[in-house]
Amino acid sequence: MEEQLIFNYTIPGDDFTRAGEASSSVKNKLKKMGLDSGTIRKVSIAMYEGEINMVIHADGGAITVEISPEKIRMILADTGPGIADIDKAMENGYSTAPEEVRSLGFGAGMGLPNMKKYTDYMNIDSTVGVGTTVTMDVYL
């Protein structure tokens, strides 16, 4: 890979039947590029968790995936309610997801910790009432 590849996705809000489509698309692209399965798995899990968060909390958003020779960068931007206490949100088991989401098997407060666990770098930039941008890198 000599140059940077950029893929953009729009994530529809409140549609659980489509949640994961963008992550699946990225996974398939990385497979075709011949990246190792461990790296693909890390990107897939981290991006899916972020995608689900956007559907649950922010009525969707936009994801940009940048693939360079050094790393895969995922930028997840939404205009949702924002995260009031990021440290609290990063705690295992802390969740503000509604009951209907929990009944589908999500909302256990594992999303952000999983995203951190499966990436080499993660930054959350959030303003209450404005939105949240999560940037994650997986190094190649």
């Binding site: 899990i45 899916y48 968790e49 589908l104 098997g105 999500f106 909302g107 256990a108 407060g109 594992m110 999303g111 910790p113 999983n114 666990k117 499966y118």
Partner: peptide, 8 residues
């Protein structure tokens, strides 16, 4: 059975 845990 919790997808959040299974994912991680």
């Amino acid at each position: 059975d919790l997808l959040s845990i299974a994912m991680g």
